[in-house]
Design a protein around this nucleic acid. Structure first.
Lengths: 345, 345
DNA sequence: CTGAAAGCGCTAACAG
DNA sequence: CTGTTAGCGCTTTCAG
């Protein structure tokens, strides 16, 4: 076989190649490429030219091994497809962009086994920190996180003990707040619609807080309905229809997320059900989508952007300054947005 | 200061620690942990016990450097927040889950400079392959991709020359197909609504194909409107309102994505505009969301899941078997879903 | 089946 | 300002 036609690199370039091409020692080349230490303008330019010319891309694997420093932050979240985590990521990116740190995301699909595996994989790259959704993890996962010896920030939820730092909202309190607002508006026959996900602990905690606050006023949920999979908007319609047929006395529907809430709202408008007069509605999350609906669904902001920012800030601070205490705890206060579907009757 | 209370690892564990704890050589420990080569059941168990006991997590940095093998696939996409890329990711994950490869995603925000930076960062980890959205990249980026000497799959779009492999649909053809379907249904006064994003090349190509096919029948777009930022659903409403007021003769609205299309649909239904009698509507993407709308918006499936799967398969195949040719080209055929908003009048 | 030796490509630490 | 010397923690290769 003849020689390769031209470029297609067989062997990736190394510092040595740049060193030879520029006639400068490997060490100095390394300094230039990392902007470390003083290098004369002349050599700097020689090196940069050679590197660019060859198309050299440094090998971070070797660099990380030699320097014992990896500027990665592991971000472990349950899902990318529900609007909530992308926004958390935005917050994380915003602050990490100002630092040398880079987020690497892993997705668990609400599955503890997957979480454990993803975590193991990520930790094996020795990241500078971990941002992980939720407070509930397998014993193994918790052990790994403790043993990693790096900052760990558990996000989204503050209802429970954290391994290290923690940034989020209290979903129990969020559920209670919504219950109180609903009662205060005069609704009494309340239905709950949510996801059939025993592993979505935050949804569960909201539900618990919700029923607890109702119970305090001697009220019980009148009906409930859970779904799994499919288009959330469509499911919201279906579940709403099913519940209103089964329990026509219902005067308020509390949805565990905005997407099914939006489906419910569209259903009610379709059917000419007066909202919020005949039936009031509320969701959870404060997603942007709601702005385009014919009525603004009542919801509760989950502070997603803020959570991402605060979590990343904690990691960034601790990466920058060794010996910080750890154990930070940030509980954000979600606000009810009453919109057009939760009003005094 | 007294000693640390208990665990909190100062120094991460190494193979050597496991070796000492188990009384087995580092080399054999390594074999056990990687399931390579023959090791007696007895030593295997000793090693596994010691590793688990200590909570050892291998250092992939060192492993990768030593073995010159990194089981990462760089996935570079413009955005996570618009429903389309999460679905591509799902397809990628589906096939990579069956292999030792792991996806690592980088987000460019439709910004070529960011793309270049993200690409550089990812390549510096020496991944086994790259999956990157689009065919348009800066010269530098293209040079890096060529020089990397690893499989590169450009996805989503097939309208143009690829660096190596390519999986997607022809957006020009997609635009043409939709134009033909609209004309065939008898609409003639057509408006176009889209994003003001000169860097969304796929949206631009659809638009070009669309106008081109109309021109072939002697028809020109009657009005157009572009938006930037904000809630797509809300923007869809606003733009639709603006256009129908400005150009009341319009009988069809072609949206560059389903989300603004959905907003337009809701607006029309609100205003009692007969759809598709008075005005027909169509979007693009085939997002799940549409299923929950009062009418099914006409759209075109962009084969996102398939694209993800096929791209990952190419990388997986080439990673498994050295010396494959490269340059694979997969053009998927998007299908029009006429729904309820694009019907013969 | 098990071990010893020799790096992978880079950077810390120390000379000049 | 620049170069030299040792590794980083693992795996490859070659001997038992």
């Amino acid at each position: 076989m003849p020689e390769q036609p031209s470029t297609p690199a067989r062997r990736p370039l190394t510092l040595r190649d740049v060193s030879e091409a520029s006639g400068v020692s490997e060490m100095t080349v390394s300094r230039v490429l990392r902007n470390r230490g003083d290098v004369s303008q002349a050599t700097r330019e020689k090196v940069l030219a050679a590197a660019k010319d060859l198309g050299y891309v440094p090998n971070k694997i070797a660099g990380a091994l030699a320097s014992q420093r990896v500027n990665l932050v592991a971000v472990i979240i349950p899902s990318l497809s529900n609007m909530v985590f992308p926004e958390v990521m935005t917050g994380i990116n915003e602050v990490l962009d100002e630092t040398p740190l880079q987020p690497v995301v892993g997705v668990t699909q609400y599955d503890p086994e997957r979480e454990e595996k993803v975590l193991y994989e990520m930790l094996s790259w020795r990241p500078s920190g971990v941002i992980i959704a939720g407070l509930e993890h397998s014993e193994n996962a918790k052990a790994m996180l403790r043993a990693a010896g790096i900052p760990v920030v558990e996000i989204m939820d503050t209802d429970g003990p954290a391994i290290d730092a923690c940034v989020g909202i209290s979903h129990r309190r969020a559920g209670r707040m919504m219950a109180q607002a609903i009662l205060k508006a005069g609704y009494r026959n309340i239905g709950f619609l949510g996801t059939k996900m025993p592993l979505d602990h935050r949804a569960r905690k909201r539900f618990e807080g919700f029923t607890e606050a109702l119970a305090k006023e001697g009220i019980e949920i009148m009906d409930r309905e859970f779904y799994k999979g499919g288009s959330a908007l469509a499911k919201g319609r279906e579940m709403t229809e099913a519940m209103l047929e089964r329990t026509p006395e219902i005067d308020f529907l509390y949805y565990s997320n905005d997407m099914i809430g939006a489906g419910g709202l569209l259903y009610c408008l379709d059917k000419g059900i007066a909202v919020p007069g005949q039936v009031g509605l509320a969701g959870f999350n404060g997603v942007e989508l709601l702005e385009g609906l014919p009525r603004r669904l009542a919801t509760m902001d989950a502070c997603r952007l803020e959570i991402g920012r605060a979590a990343a800030q904690i990691i960034a601070d601790r990466a920058a300054e060794a010996g910080l205490a750890g154990g930070e705890r940030v509980e954000l206060a979600p606000k009810i947005e009453a919109g057009d579907t939760l009003k005094r009757r």
